[in-house]
């Protein structure tokens, strides 16, 4: 693409006689990411999520991804994971995602066991260092796992939104997995 035709004029020899300074390592990016996570209204990571309508009151921990690229849901079914590579709850834009197991034979009922009983208008409060951020449920939907709109659930731009995800539907004993994902969409109140 560039037919480089350097026409330099004595540049390489124009060096100072004094020793140059020690190598400087400029690790700081000069250009910020073009699509940064929007600044949060809250001042830090969520620590607790509460929804009185379904008796939800659980600790929130930051999570990332598993080695095979799935969201890393906390092994402890009493805990809720916040997807730390996405927006914070209370951020000015984007979709903040919380996920937790529905239940487990060993551990019993999970934090999100009763999420399917949520309905539009229910209140969900996420506590962070800046205080509680209140959301209201707009919609509750169930998707087969191969049809979950993941790109939308985890979108980093667009209107601010809180998304709660757990499992639902029949349990497939061979896949050792529930068939569906239950998704609760909520908006800042």
């Amino acid at each position: 693409m560039l037919a480089t035709s350097p026409v330099w004029a004595g540049l390489p020899d124009a060096r100072p006689a004094t020793p140059p300074p020690a190598p400087v390592v400029a690790a700081a990016p000069v250009a910020e990411p073009s699509a940064p996570v929007a600044p949060a209204v809250s001042t830090g990571e969520p620590v607790r999520v509460r929804a009185a309508s379904v008796g939800l009151d659980a600790a929130v921990v930051p999570v990332g991804v598993t080695n095979d690229g799935l969201m890393a849901v906390p092994e402890n079914v009493a805990e809720v994971g916040w997807y730390r590579f996405g927006p914070l709850p209370g951020a000015a834009s984007g979709s903040a995602v919380l996920a937790s197991h529905v239940d487990d034979r060993v551990q019993g009922e999970g934090a999100f066991a009763d999420l399917s009983r949520m309905g539009p208008g229910d209140e969900i409060s996420v506590d962070g260092p800046g205080g509680p951020i209140v959301h209201r449920v707009r919609e509750v939907r169930t998707y087969p796992k191969d049809a979950v709109p993941l790109a939308d659930l985890f979108r980093e731009t667009g209107p601010p939104r809180l998304v709660l995800v757990t499992c639902d539907g029949p349990f497939d004993t061979d896949a050792r997995s529930y068939r569906d994902n239950l998704v609760v969409y909520a908006e800042p109140a």
Partner: peptide
């Protein structure tokens, strides 16, 4: 992420 595995970490409900 490719999915949200949110059920039964022990492999059974």
């Amino acid at each position: 992420p490719h999915g949200v595995p949110a059920g039964a970490p022990s492999g059974a409900p």
